[in-house]
Amino acid sequence: MKPVLDVNQLTMDFGGLRALDHIDLQVKPGEIVALIGPNGAGKTTFFNCITGIYSPTKGDMLLTRPEGDSSRLNGLKPNRVTERGMARTFQNIRLFQNMTVLENVMIGRHCRLRSGIPGAILRPPANRREEKQVVDDSYRMLEKIGLARYVNEFAKNLPYGAQRRLEIARALATEPFLLLLDEPAAGMNAQETKELDDLIIRLRAEMGVSILLIEHDMKLVMSLSDRIYVVDYGKKIAEGNPEEIKSNPAVIKAYLGEDIDA
């Protein structure tokens, strides 16, 4: 089977600085893949390149639906990338703070809905149905992620862990087949991290999404991932399953001083 995400020789320069240096990466259908590396290694830049926020200097990015049709991501605007089935969360939470939890998820549904301005003003039956549908769908999504009790709260008033989960709910509402998680466990306590671990496993089982995540919590990475890519200074220094990565001397060297024996 073709990989859902196939990145070849991705390179990104900022001025004279090479943030990503010929990175290759694949995510196969149903896989959970982790992208790890020390701070400033270029992980978030990688996400920003493949989601169209930055335009990479060089390289090919190919997204393939599980049904088989592929599209090149190069040059696509971020919203087009999302429409094609790849959604993301942000490392520094970027919720719509002054909107309610439900509305945040409803925004995620935006690109799967059709009604335009005339529909909004005249509200024909099709439009009413769609609006009712989006409210129901969004609520169900919140139930699935375990946020239903916050439905009418402002996003900014949620506890930290719940905000991270809301980011995931919002991304899932766009109906992705590949979900990118940027440090989903950052700032979470052990209990919340454990719940997140379960949630990610459950999402893959129930919704069949493939997942690519950036994470610093090695315990979470090792327990979740099928495969791991390690980057340092914008270069890929290792790839393999958790066992291989743990014993890889290059990785240990890059992380020297950081604790990876989880």
Partner: peptide, 29 residues
């Protein structure tokens, strides 16, 4: 009033809140 409570109206408000996140949610800025 009707616009405020519609798909487009929500997108406007979300755009005011955070453009980058909006685009990542598939909204054409």
């Amino acid at each position: 009033r009707r616009l405020q409570d519609s798909r487009i109206g929500r997108a406007w408000i979300a755009l005011r809140e955070d453009e980058v996140a909006c685009q990542a949610m598939g909204i054409d800025k």
